[in-house]
Amino acid sequence: MSAHPSRPASDAPVLSVRDLRIEFPLGIVVDGSSFDIARGQTMGLVGESGSGKSMTSLAIMGLLPKEATTTGSARFHGDELLHRSDASMRRTRGDQIAMIFQDPLSSLNPYYTVGFQIAEAYRAHKGGTKAAAMRKAAEAMDRVRIPDAAGRVGHYPHQFSGGMRQRVMIAMALVCEPDLIIGDEPTTALDVTVQAQILDLLAEVQEMTQAAMLFITHDLAVVSQISDHVTVMRFGQTVEQGTAEQIFSNPGNDYTKALLAATPRLDDVVDLPEPILTKGGR
């Protein structure tokens, strides 16, 4: 492998994952994953349910359960992320790397208002007064299209709908203007109109900050629209990797092809059992 000493620094990947392997006492869940994401670029990570997508992202965030062991490397701006101390990972998280989790309800604290949680995320990395951070939080909630944001900063997570909680997570991830955004199914709980707005917002933020993005989703249509590159996983392994164009117009792997073929389409109409509408009807 030859190095590229002449390459300008801005070309160096923001995130570089090499031979990442994650093992639990019960078995291997990620078996040799490698990919790079450059500034301003988006990697779409798709694949079978249980194939190791969330585990890959948790390894990068230093948030794997304690019983997991990892080998390989994940470098962020050249610095190794694996096996770092909790304290040093905490500084990087939020400030430079932000994650939108798959299950918003269990990643928000039920005892604090959503506004407070966004404000604290902001203050931990950018400082300032509590009042200023609270205003930032309201602004951020407004940007993710939460109706009456200023009026709802004082509400608790359980008072929000599933999609609103997901938007709170997105707001929290964006207030710190991170260099790397990891979204694990960040828009699945949203209706398609709000989803389109949030994807536009992410693109806008990315354009402005040149953040790199790792976007995990089962929605291949969304992946085709936002990704520069795509990685397809199954059983802990990468079965195919390429540019979005390659993966969608000329998929090489049978599993990738099967996924594309199984994508439900709005004009597919299937036969359903007849409902029982009359008394004698069966």
């Binding site: 291949l220 249509a221 979005a244 164009e245 969608f248 092809k257 389409r265």
Partner: peptide, 20 residues
Amino acid sequence: KTLLSAVPSIDPRWDAGRCS
């Protein structure tokens, strides 16, 4: 109508799954 028009679809230039 708004909702239906916002349904994302695979980028039509690349839609290989369509024919298989």
